[in-house]
Amino acid sequence: MTGKKIKLSKVIEQFNLKIECGEQFLDKEIKGGYVSDLLSDVIANCKEGYIWITLQGHPNIVAVAVLKEACGIVIINNRQPEEETIKKAKKEKVPIMTSSLTAFELVGKLYELGISG
C-alpha cells in the first residue's frame, strides 16, 4: 500500500458507486481489496479493513464481511442485494454499495487509485 489513506467515501464519489446502506460508516479507511464470489475464498483470504468486490447479493455476504471485518461490500455488474441482505447489513453496520461496472473494471480502477490486495 502507498502511504496515502483512501476512504470509502472517496471511492464511492470517484467511481459513482450507489450506496445501498451504511451511509453513516463511509468515513472508514480502505486498507486493501479482495474480489471473489466464492465465500470460502473470501473467508480464507480477505483481510480486516478490505473492500470486498463480489456479484453475490444474498444475506450471507454480510456474515462474511462481519467475520472478516471488511470495510464494505461492492456488488458489481448492476446486481442488486436482496432485501434481507440490506436488513442484515444495517443491523451489522456493514456498508453495501452497488456498481454498474464489471469486477474487472472496478478492481482496475481501485488498483489504479492505490488500493492493492
Binding site: 466464492l38 465465500l39 470460502s40 475464498d41 473467508i43 480464507a44 463480489t54 450471507n60
Partner: peptide, 12 residues
C-alpha cells in the same frame, strides 16, 4: 451459485 460448496471448507 450462492458461492458455497466450492469444496474448500474441510481443507480450509
Amino acid at each position: 451459485e450462492m458461492g458455497f460448496g466450492a469444496g474448500m471448507g474441510l481443507p480450509n
